[in-house]
């Protein structure tokens, strides 16, 4: 059996001539947090809806827990909690009543409602009508709903949307804890890399319906470039010398930039100094994950 809890093969969803999702092979390992990244409208929510059977794929296959979703939907969904896009709620009911509706369908004990209310820290407002909730509270209610019954797989679509910084922090901590405390596998979608970077083990980057990267955060970092920045005296001699060493050099603002090449900064420093060139500044600039994410999504847009 595969080690992936979620596995899709060539998943396609077309709406008329528009392909919202185009041949996605999603692979989410068991017990990990998977960050599903992509700009707004990239196809994240459509993919998640296909994972839940809300949308039927035009082509391709969805397997959850090693079984095809199409023929095992009910058994699979018993083990899945989800919050797709904005949280769903009945505004005229209280938080408790909302959760109780889901609890009844899942045939869980009443204590489960109190447990999830506590997890998302809504116990004190459990009797308040949800229409009077702030967006952040509604978001937390949506997460509580997804946590009912301690599912083995949690699908959260943009769970921190509309939350204030402390709320984001709280939800992030909660998501981070889940695989350790309950063995839960979590797929979190977001359009903000910095959010996913702090919690995910694996990431998938989707752009215009296509998966343009999938792997660990370390794999993603490798995709970034580094630039060596040198301030030397005399500049002209340093430039000639570095070019003679076979590197491409750019001169900007009185500094030398050696981009996209594997240069050992210590070795470079040594060579310059030994040639009587004084090195006043030498630093290496590595792309942040955010920059890598932006650059790969931009590259894909150009194609």
């Amino acid at each position: 059996m595969s080690n992936y809890l979620i596995e899709t093969n060539g998943l396609i969803k077309s709406f008329g001539n528009f392909k919202a999702v185009n041949g996605i092979d999603l692979k989410v390992p068991k017990g990990e947090i998977y960050g599903f990244l992509g700009p707004n409208g990239a196809g994240k929510s459509t993919t998640i809806r296909m994972l839940l059977g809300l949308i039927k794929p035009t082509q391709g296959m969805v397997q959850l827990f090693g079984r095809p979703l199409k023929s095992n939907r009910l058994d699979i969904l018993k083990k899945v909690g989800s919050m797709v896009e904005s949280p769903s709620y009945y505004g005229h009911l209280s938080a408790y009543e909302n959760l109780n509706i889901t609890r009844k369908i899942l045939e869980l004990p009443k204590s489960e409602v109190d447990r999830v209310l506590q997890v998302v820290r809504l116990t004190e407002v459990k009797d308040k009508l949800v229409k009077k909730f702030s967006l952040g509270m509604k978001q937390r209610l949506g997460i509580a709903q997804a946590l009912l019954g301690n599912p083995e797989l949690l699908l959260l679509d943009e769970p921190t949307n509309g939350l204030d910084p402390s709320g984001i922090h709280e939800i992030r901590d909660l998501i981070k804890r889940l695989p350790f405390e309950t063995g839960m596998t979590v797929l979190v979608s977001s359009h903000i890399l910095s959010e996913v970077e702090l919690i995910a083990d694996q990431v998938g980057v989707i752009q215009k319906g296509e998966m343009i990267f999938q792997g660990t955060l370390q794999d993603l970092r490798v995709k970034g470039s580094s630039t060596l920045i040198i301030d030397a005296n005399p500049m002209e001699r340093a430039l000639v010398h570095i070019e003679q060493m076979g590197y491409t050099v750019q001169v900007r603002d009185g500094r030398l930039y050696i981009p996209e090449q594997t240069v050992d900064p210590a070795e470079m420093n040594k060579k310059l100094v030994m040639n009587n060139i004084s090195v006043r500044h030498l630093s290496e600039h590595r792309d942040t994950l955010e920059e890598i994410f932006l650059s790969i999504t931009r590259e894909d847009l150009k194609r």
Binding site: L52, L54, L77, V80, V84, S86, L106
Partner: peptide, 16 residues
């Protein structure tokens, strides 16, 4: 109740 805040997606994501 289901269409107002897109509750269909929540209801139909449950094992029913």
């Amino acid at each position: 109740n289901e269409s107002k805040v897109d509750n269909w997606k929540n209801l139909l994501s449950l094992p029913v």
